[in-house]
């Protein structure tokens, strides 16, 4: 079923409320976008779902099973995570780096087998990184590096993929490439959760969006529902220009809006 359901997630860090009763649901075959202004708590919500930060009253379910009842290794097989701006600490060969995605599937001491190689080849093919496989990972350009790290996450072959800002600092070509990779994963039934700042990509590629502000989920639903002119004004404080290309909607943030409420608060 590849479902992930997170409800009522609350995270406090050093006493400060970062995520406040937020929720997120994703099911097989859809790209769910998690959007919101900087500091809204998007990354922290994802980290709570992944168990990287402790949430109060944690309610995260994988296909209906509470995540606390699933051990670390099984969790790792089910949810792959592409971290924001992911780090590469050692100058490893690209193919070996991507192969790290197979770690959850290996018993201790077992060597990677044929099926693993197949998963690697698939991940490299999807992300168009096959030609990089013998390069040294730390010498890649920003775009190549992002693709390789995405390939590493895809190599896990997990039913759920969580990607935190996978298109940040990429050029338009690579942004579209990453989004298309995510889309092709959903065609095979994977559930994808992706944090995006580019509202246009969110409108075009996501089936559903969760909009966060100040740690709360303020809206969710289809992109048309969530990114209404009203929401854009109150949450992002922008007005947008909208249009259509071949029946696909686009949205272009166009001008800042100074709300009276904000002025009064200051």
């Amino acid at each position: 079923m590849n479902r992930i359901d997170a409800e009522n997630i609350t995270v406090r860090i050093n006493g400060k409320l970062i995520v406040n009763r937020a929720c997120l649901h994703a099911k097989s075959g859809e790209i769910v976008g998690l959007i919101g202004p900087n500091g809204a708590g998007k990354s922290t919500l994802l980290r709570a779902i992944l168990g990287l930060v402790t949430a109060e009253d944690e309610k995260v379910y994988l296909d209906g099973t509470s995540i606390q009842d699933i051990n670390l290794q099984d969790r790792a097989k089910k949810i792959a995570y592409a971290a924001q701006g992911g780090t590469i600490h050692w100058p490893m060969i690209v193919e070996r780096l991507i192969a790290l995605g197979r770690i959850p599937h290996l018993d201790p001491w077992r060597t990677p087998m044929v099926e693993d190689q197949a998963a690697l080849d698939r991940a490299m093919r999807l992300t168009d990184t096959t030609h990089l496989k013998d390069r040294i990972a730390t010498t890649l350009s920003g775009g190549e590096r992002a693709s390789v790290l995405l390939a590493r996450a895809i190599a896990v072959d997990a039913p759920i993929l969580i990607a935190d800002e996978p298109v940040a600092s990429l050029d338009p070509f690579h942004q579209l490439q990453v989004m298309n990779v995510l889309k092709s994963l959903t065609d095979n039934g994977t559930s994808v959760v992706v944090v995006l700042h580019d509202l246009n990509l969110a409108v075009r590629f996501c089936q559903r969006l969760y909009l966060m502000q100040d740690g709360k989920t303020v809206a969710y639903g289809t992109p048309e529902e969530v990114l209404s002119d009203d929401m854009l004004r109150t949450v992002y404080q922008v007005e947008a220009s909208r249009g259509q290309v071949n029946g696909e909607a686009y949205l272009l943030p166009w001008r800042q809006v100074k709300t009276h409420g904000q002025v009064a608060e200051e």
């Binding site: 992944l50 969790r75 949810i79 971290a83 600490h89 790290l100 770690i103 959850p104």
Partner: peptide
């Protein structure tokens, strides 16, 4: 080996 990708990613790999 998993730590090559940082602590967060290593943990999501089941370490």
């Amino acid at each position: 080996t998993a730590l090559t990708l940082g602590e967060d990613t290593a943990r999501t790999l089941g370490i």
